[in-house]
Simulated scan of single mutants.
Amino acid sequence: MTRYFFHVDNGTSPPTMKVSVPHLEAARLEAVRAAWRDDKESKQSFWEHMTPWIMNVTDDEDHLLFTPQFVVPSLDISRVICSL
């Protein structure tokens, strides 16, 4: 198993999470799961405060492997087309 570290920057910066999974693809899946769990457990949901946050995923030697970004785009009402 390989250890990966999830460093979250969402404005509240919870502690770095450490996971052990067999390969990089599993770490990518776990990063999405961890983001979902973090959102469910936080006092204010990502969906409520609408600010983007990132998760830097590193290996044991602190090399950056990937960075998922979570962003909710704002709705531009002028681009909404409704036909009756």
Rank of each mutant, 00 (worst) to 15 (best):
R33L: 08
W53T: 06
P68L: 07
D62R: 15
V80G: 09
M17I: 11
L29P: 00
K40L: 12
S74L: 10
F70I: 05
W36C: 00
I77A: 06
S45Q: 08
K40H: 03
I81L: 09
I77Q: 09
H7I: 13
V71I: 11
W53F: 15
E41K: 14
D9M: 04
P52L: 11
Q44T: 14
M1Y: 02
R33V: 03
R79V: 01
P52D: 12
F5M: 02
W53R: 14
P73H: 10
T67Q: 13
M1H: 03
E30I: 01
D39T: 11
T12K: 12
Q69I: 06
D59W: 07
M55D: 01
W36F: 04
E25A: 15
D76R: 14
P52Y: 06
E30F: 02
S42E: 03
S13K: 07
F6H: 00
G11Q: 04
R28H: 11
V72F: 10
V71P: 02
W53C: 05
P15W: 04
N10H: 05
L29T: 14
S20M: 14
M1Q: 05
K18D: 08
D62H: 11
F70H: 11
D59V: 07
E61V: 01
T2W: 03
V71M: 10
S78M: 07
S83T: 01
H23W: 06
N56G: 04
R28T: 03
F66P: 02
E30H: 08
D38F: 11
D9G: 03
E41S: 15
E48F: 03
E48K: 13
S74I: 02
R3C: 09
D39I: 06
N10T: 06
D62T: 05
E48A: 13
M55R: 00
D60P: 00
K18P: 02
S20N: 12
E30G: 00
P15E: 15
M55G: 01
R79K: 13
D60C: 02
L65N: 02
V80E: 11
T12R: 15
H63A: 08
V8R: 03
N56L: 07
L64V: 02
F70L: 11
R33T: 04
A34R: 05
A31R: 00
F46N: 03
F46R: 10
H63G: 01
I77P: 01
C82H: 03
G11N: 09
A34S: 12
T12G: 10
R28M: 14
S45T: 09
D60L: 05
I77H: 03
T16V: 13
I54G: 10
A26V: 07
R37I: 10
Q69W: 05
D59A: 04
F70Q: 12
Q69V: 05
D9H: 05
H7D: 11
D60H: 07
Y4M: 12
R37Y: 08
R37E: 15
V72I: 15
D62A: 14
H7F: 05
W47Q: 12
C82L: 13
L84M: 06
F6T: 00
I77C: 01
E61A: 14
T67V: 14
F6Q: 00
M50D: 11
E48C: 02
A26I: 05
M17A: 14
K18M: 11
F46W: 13
L29N: 13
A27F: 06
